[in-house]
Amino acid sequence: TYTFKVDNKDQAKKAAKWAKKLGLSFQIEKHGDTFKITVQ
């Protein structure tokens, strides 16, 4: 499981695209202005 934080929606979208490309499941949680992405 890999967790990282991004500062904006664009970065969150890029991370989601990357995870989908690799066939991984992911969750994006919004914490105020940051997004926490968990990829597994």
Rank of each mutant, 00 (worst) to 15 (best):
T1M: 10
T1G: 11
T1Y: 13
T1S: 14
T1W: 12
T1Q: 10
T1R: 11
T1I: 13
T1F: 11
T1A: 11
Y2R: 07
Y2G: 02
Y2S: 03
Y2K: 05
Y2M: 09
Y2F: 13
Y2C: 15
Y2P: 02
T3G: 03
T3P: 02
T3L: 04
T3A: 05
T3R: 04
T3M: 07
T3E: 09
T3F: 09
T3S: 11
T3K: 04
F4I: 06
F4R: 01
F4W: 11
F4C: 15
F4E: 01
F4H: 02
F4S: 01
F4A: 02
F4G: 01
F4P: 01
F4L: 04
K5G: 06
K5P: 05
K5Y: 15
K5E: 15
K5T: 15
K5R: 08
K5F: 15
K5L: 15
K5W: 15
K5N: 14
V6Q: 01
V6W: 03
V6L: 10
V6H: 01
V6I: 06
V6R: 02
V6N: 01
V6S: 02
V6E: 01
V6M: 05
D7S: 14
D7N: 13
D7T: 12
D7A: 13
D7R: 11
D7M: 11
D7G: 11
D7K: 14
D7F: 13
N8G: 11
N8S: 13
N8R: 06
N8D: 07
N8P: 02
N8Q: 04
N8H: 05
N8M: 03
K9P: 09
K9Q: 09
K9A: 13
K9L: 15
K9W: 15
K9R: 12
K9Y: 15
K9S: 08
D10Q: 14
D10R: 14
D10W: 15
D10A: 15
D10M: 13
D10V: 12
D10G: 12
D10P: 06
Q11L: 10
Q11V: 08
Q11G: 07
Q11T: 07
Q11I: 07
Q11F: 06
Q11N: 05
Q11Y: 05
Q11H: 08
A12N: 01
A12T: 03
A12M: 08
A12R: 03
A12H: 02
A12D: 00
A12C: 08
A12Y: 04
K13Y: 09
K13R: 13
K13P: 01
K13L: 12
K13I: 12
K13A: 10
K13H: 08
K13T: 08
K13V: 10
K13F: 08
K14P: 00
K14V: 08
K14L: 09
K14R: 13
K14S: 07
K14Y: 08
K14M: 09
K14N: 07
K14I: 08
A15P: 01
A15I: 15
A15M: 12
A15L: 14
A15F: 15
A15H: 04
A15N: 02
A15Y: 15
A15W: 15
A16C: 14
A16Y: 12
A16I: 14
A16T: 07
A16S: 07
A16D: 02
A16G: 06
A16P: 00
K17I: 12
K17F: 08
K17D: 10
K17R: 13
K17L: 12
K17H: 09
K17P: 00
K17V: 09
K17T: 08
K17G: 06
W18I: 06
W18N: 03
W18K: 05
W18M: 05
W18Q: 04
W18G: 02
W18L: 05
W18R: 05
A19K: 00
A19G: 03
A19Q: 01
A19H: 02
A19D: 00
A19R: 00
A19W: 03
A19L: 15
A19E: 01
A19N: 01
K20F: 07
K20M: 11
K20E: 09
K20P: 01
K20G: 05
K20D: 06
K20C: 07
K21P: 00
K21G: 08
K21E: 09
K21V: 06
K21Q: 09
K21S: 12
K21D: 07
K21I: 06
K21W: 08
K21F: 06
K21H: 08
K21R: 10
L22T: 05
L22I: 06
L22Y: 10
L22G: 03
L22Q: 10
L22M: 13
L22C: 15
L22N: 13
G23Q: 04
G23A: 03
G23K: 06
G23E: 03
G23L: 03
G23C: 04
G23T: 02
G23D: 03
G23H: 06
G23S: 04
G23R: 04
G23Y: 03
L24E: 01
L24W: 07
L24Y: 11
L24R: 02
L24I: 05
S25T: 12
S25F: 11
S25Y: 10
S25N: 11
S25A: 11
S25C: 08
S25M: 09
S25I: 12
S25L: 10
S25K: 12
S25D: 09
S25W: 11
S25H: 11
F26E: 00
F26M: 08
F26A: 06
F26R: 00
F26V: 13
F26W: 06
F26C: 12
Q27F: 13
Q27V: 14
Q27L: 11
Q27R: 13
Q27C: 11
Q27H: 13
Q27S: 13
Q27T: 14
Q27K: 13
I28Y: 04
I28A: 04
I28D: 00
I28K: 03
I28T: 02
I28E: 02
I28G: 01
I28Q: 03
I28S: 04
I28V: 10
E29T: 12
E29C: 14
E29W: 07
E29V: 11
E29N: 06
E29M: 07
E29Y: 06
E29I: 09
E29L: 06
K30P: 08
K30R: 12
K30F: 07
K30A: 08
K30G: 05
K30Y: 07
K30V: 09
K30Q: 12
K30L: 07
K30S: 08
K30N: 06
H31L: 13
H31W: 10
H31Y: 11
H31C: 11
H31S: 11
H31I: 15
H31A: 12
H31N: 11
H31D: 15
H31E: 15
H31Q: 14
H31T: 14
H31K: 08
G32I: 03
G32L: 05
G32H: 05
G32V: 03
G32D: 08
G32M: 05
G32F: 05
D33Q: 09
D33A: 08
D33M: 07
D33I: 06
D33E: 11
D33H: 09
D33S: 11
D33W: 05
D33P: 08
T34Q: 14
T34D: 07
T34P: 01
T34F: 14
T34Y: 15
T34L: 10
T34E: 12
T34V: 14
T34K: 14
T34H: 15
F35K: 01
F35W: 14
F35S: 01
F35Q: 01
F35V: 03
F35P: 00
F35C: 02
F35L: 04
F35I: 06
F35M: 04
F35R: 01
F35D: 00
F35T: 02
K36R: 12
K36S: 13
K36P: 00
K36I: 15
K36Q: 14
K36G: 03
K36E: 13
K36W: 15
K36N: 09
K36D: 06
K36M: 15
I37V: 11
I37T: 00
I37N: 00
I37Y: 01
I37K: 00
I37L: 04
T38Y: 05
T38S: 06
T38D: 02
T38A: 04
T38P: 00
T38L: 05
T38R: 05
T38E: 03
V39D: 00
V39G: 00
V39S: 01
V39L: 10
V39K: 00
V39C: 03
V39Q: 00
V39M: 06
V39P: 00
Q40L: 12
Q40F: 15
Q40H: 14
Q40A: 12
Q40N: 12
Q40G: 13
Q40V: 11
Q40I: 12
